[in-house]
Structure formats: structure tokens, C-alpha cells
Simulated scan of single mutants.
Amino acid sequence: MTKETLLMQYQSECLSALKSVANIHKPFEKAFMDTMKLFMAIPDRINFLQLGRYGCFSEQTYRNLFEYETFDWFAFNSSIISKHLTGKRKAIAIDPSYIPKSGKKTPWIGYFWSGCAGEYKRGLEIMGIGVIAIDNHECMTLGSIQTPDCKTLDNIDKNLVDWYSSYLISRKDKLQSLSRTVVADAFFSRETFITPMCENDFHVISRFRNDVILYYPTLEQKTGKRGHSKWFDGRIDFANLDLTRCKEYEVNKEKLYGLRVYAKALKRYVSLAIWYPMGGRTDKWQLYFSTDDSMDGREVLDYYRTRFQLEFCFRDGKQHAGITNCQGADFRKLDFHFNASLAAVNLAKAA
């Protein structure tokens, strides 16, 4: 297949997805289609100067386009996802990503964690929201939102975890139409995130720290006497697991066990998957959980492993779609650039 044929197919997918977004006028459609084509075609940095150089419109036209803050990226990407992301088991994956950026006038610039560098660095951060297909190990992004800096969070009297959960809850109608399961890394395995999400009909799959305090559920029967019966039995020692309470699964040469446990930090029962890698050695373990305490242990592990596909969307956006090249210094232009870059990766996968 030639480059010209691939580009035509890419533009066809883009136009089809654009038709699903309401209230789009013709001038916007022309500029938007040209912009999305350039996100894949420009071989160097993707910024307003380059768009004006390679595109069909002036640099100012692209600057004006990026100020269009009412564009529904969730609807645009949902159209692509519904056509190309197959499989019955799907979930919402979330993950923050560091974006290098400088400038005194850049909004919400601050120090954020860079996983690649292993340290806090000055720049921006976005929270990417994607849909993962568990059976096919694929992911496409729904959209992204810029993370506030510390000063802004202090002004609204929230911490970072509260802000993440409140944003997801604000978009729950759209998200729950795709899946009620949210998969996130170990940073989100805390009560202040889990409780509000579960109160809004989400289930969360994440990972515990290895020193987490968990208890076996009680085996005592109700006696009929006054007072509540025991909530749970003894604390779980993962180096000496009680195998009579666990269900064992075959996973290559490793060992995987599943059971229902009480998590002290989360104040709830969860479904736990205990994975012993490195040939099944019992001195090393990894703990994955789901707030849906009826979920199978193998399924918990499958969902969490597939979460990493969202990282590949960020990687492709940074390497090939210029997500770090935005020249804008206001919220609208930054938001449009981040979402356009991730949408270009979706379209490339669909084409």
C-alpha cells in the first residue's frame, strides 16, 4: 500500500469521525481536516509555524482553529473507537503523562513527575483517558485534560487525586456508555480516589503496594447474638499464603492466586490477584485488585496488564504526532494540540 493510499484512507476515517460531532460548520471542517493531515505528514516539529509552511492555510488560520474550545473530542474519538476497537471486554484506562514545556506565561506550568526521567521536572502534565480492548490488547484515546499546578489546586481546595476523580465523575455519562471499569496504576490505589468513583457506579482496577495491610474474610457464621459478627480473620502474610482460601491459576511458570479480601486502607472488600513472578518464588509478589469483589483473579490481572497500552499512545504521540511541540500559551490552544495529537494516533491505527 502506497503512502498516498494510506493518507487518503487516514483522511477518510477523519472525515467519517468528524461527521459524528454536532454543530460543525464548513470552514472549520476544511481547516480541521487539513490540520489532522499535517499532524501525520509533517516530518519535523508540529507547531503553528510548520502548519502555516506545509498547510493550505495561513499560520493565523491555524492559530484561530486551535482556539475552538467547544470541539467534542470525546465524540470524535468515540466514533473511531466504536468502529475499530473490537472485543467484548473493554475498560477505561487513565494515566498522567509529563509534557516538557517552558515559558513564564504558560498556564498551569509547574513541577510534575516524569516516569522516563524518574524525577520531578518543570513542564506540564496531561491526564490521558483511553479505551482498552482486553482480548486484543489494543488501546485508543478518548481525550486528555491538562493537570492543574499546585497553586491552582490550593486555590480550589483540592489535591491532585481529588481533582482526577472529580473530572472523571463529571464525564461519567460518556465514560459509562463505554465501560464502568476504570483501570489505573498504583498511584490511584487510595481511598480518596476509590470511594468517590465507586459511589458513582464505577469499578476500579489498580495495584497495591507490596506492604499493604489486607485481611482474609471471616469464615464464622452468624450466631444470632447481639452485635455484628467478625468482619475478617487474620492479616494476610504473602510469603506464607493460606492456599486453602485461594483459587490457583496457571500462568506459564509463574504462580497466580485469586481471593476476596478486606482492604484496610480502602475500607472495603476487593477481589485480589496475587502474582508470584520469577519462577513462582514466594519472596517476591505483586498485588492487583478490583473493587468488583466478584471478579475473577485472572481477569483482574488481564485488565491491569492491558492498561499499559495507553502508554504506547503517549509514546506514539510524542515520537510521531508532535504532542510536545505546541507553541500556544493559553488553555484552549494547548488543549486542542494535545487532543489533536492523540486523535491523529487513533486515526493512524484505524487507517
Rank of each mutant, 00 (worst) to 15 (best):
T5W: 07
L7H: 08
L7P: 01
H25V: 00
E29Y: 00
F39M: 04
F39Q: 03
F39V: 03
M40R: 10
I42V: 14
D44P: 11
L49Y: 10
S58T: 04
Y62S: 02
E69Y: 15
A93P: 02
A93C: 09
W108T: 11
Y111R: 15
Y111P: 01
E119Y: 13
L124T: 08
E125A: 07
V131T: 07
T141S: 14
S144D: 05
K158V: 03
N159A: 08
S165D: 03
I169D: 10
K174V: 13
Q176F: 13
S177P: 04
V183E: 06
A186K: 09
R190W: 09
T192K: 13
T192W: 05
F208M: 11
V212K: 08
L214E: 05
W231D: 14
A239L: 09
A239N: 15
L241D: 08
K247I: 13
K255W: 05
Y262L: 05
W275A: 07
Y276E: 09
P277E: 10
R281C: 11
T282N: 13
W285L: 06
E299D: 14
Y304T: 06
R305E: 14
K318T: 04
H320R: 12
C326V: 06
L334G: 02
D335E: 14
A343Q: 00
V345P: 01
N346F: 00
N346C: 05
